[in-house]
Design a protein around this nucleic acid. Sequence first.
RNA 1: GGCCCGUUCGUCUAUCGGUUAGGACACCUGGUUUUCAACCAGGUAAGAGGGGUUCGACUCCCCUACGGGCUGCCA
Length: 471
Amino acid sequence: MNAAEAKPVVTRFAPSPTGYLHIGGGRTALFNWLYARGRGGKFLLRIEDTDRERSTPEATEAILQGLRWLGLDWDGEAVSQFDRKDRHAEVAHQMLARGTAYKCFSTQDEIAAFRAAQEAAGASYAVFQSPWRDADPASYPDLPYVIRMMAPRTGETVIADQVQGRVVIQNATLDDMIVLRSDGTPTYMLAVVVDDHDMGVTHVIRGDDHLNNAARQQMVYDAMGWDIPVWAHIPLIHGPDGKKLSKRHGATAVGDYQVQGYPAAGMRNYLTRLGWAHGNEEFFTSEQAMGWFDLGGIGRSPARLDFKKLENLCGQHIAATEDAALLHELEAYLVAAHKDLLTDAQRERLSQALFCVKDRAKTFPELLEKAHFALISRPVVADAAAQAALDTVSRGILKSLTPRLQTGSWTKEELEPILTEIATAHGIGFGKLAAPLRAALAGRTATPSVYDMMLVIGRDETISRLEDAAG
RNA sequence: GGCCCGUUCGUCUAUCGGUUAGGACACCUGGUUUUCAACCAGGUAAGAGGGGUUCGACUCCCCUACGGGCUGCCA
């Protein structure tokens, strides 16, 4: 192992705050987090807010909020790229001094005309070649200028990518990109390199829409004599139809999943497994994933979102979550989705009911619906299906049941023979008895076991609800 | 247009020259059941197409098709 390999891992997530946290961005952040955390490294956050027109504080907050919900904690304060603009300009001028960049006085009209002429001449690619690249500084006019990278015109740039493999770009197809705009602000290509270098980023894990950019950025590293980070360009996520993910596919924001009541652990599991595999492992915790995750295991083709699989994994995670933690998540979900708070009584009863509902739900709203019986107070309002189960005959049966519940210990062992006996006495199967019981106790037709419900709400409440329903 | 990347069951994937191409989700059948969820048993289902290389290709190379990305004084 040489010195470079021994360096502690530093990864980063660098979103631009122009909107909510996209599900694809969430996965990129997750991969960076997993990689760093699994190796005792650092996971940094940088907000790429150099585009003042489109960046908003609201978007920044939405992104931070999305990351927090996903449970992706970052080290230190989030860095604002805009705040570092002086440093970026400084590096641009260092490049100038090193002779790896030059001032270009071409106007945007001139550039457009150059491209148009090239296109008209049938050139296969339109690479702008600035007439100022080799100009004598003595001939510089007193006009606004940009600083351009003095990119090599021949040869090739090789990106040794951990996911995509060895990618070769012909230098002739790359132009002398602008690193500092005429207003003195840095372009993304410069800022990202300077920041990654200054922040000590060792592994750049990002969407493969940046794969071509990596060649340009690598030239900046070379121009400054800086170490090139390990590149890993991961494929983007697509919608269920294989097309680029967009609004019409439904939820594209991480926040949407929170509001829809998917547990964060399930999201992490699903997103990790999307485009990455560790043998046949499907259901795992983030701690396990940290131990297994590596760049070589990332697939090279874009993966499609599959909500059914997401739900399946979420159901497994809900079932595996400890009651106290689950209750906490449910309350957070209620606030995030409905601005609802639980009363103390509801919280108490819900926590007692979790054992019988958490392995029957794939999402929080589904779980809450199953736990409806524990959240309501009398009088129980039955939905249409439940009302249908409370016909005259059924009400009569319930009426004959209540006296039998007054005494004895309140356990499933004692209750079972009583209910069985009532069913038998009326010549019906247990299923026929359970239906009106569910309706009376929960006002629903889909509920946990009738015994579990009775035990959770207790004898008095059970009898009262049965009497209410029996009329 | 040019350049770059990709293509295994419907979906996520395993395989890293020799396998009856495995698993998971979904789906179908049967069982269990107190509704829902779950559970048990079984089943349908894949290497985009065409050329090579090789004793032997899903695996390596080329072409085509399709999908995606980049080609900005956006990030």
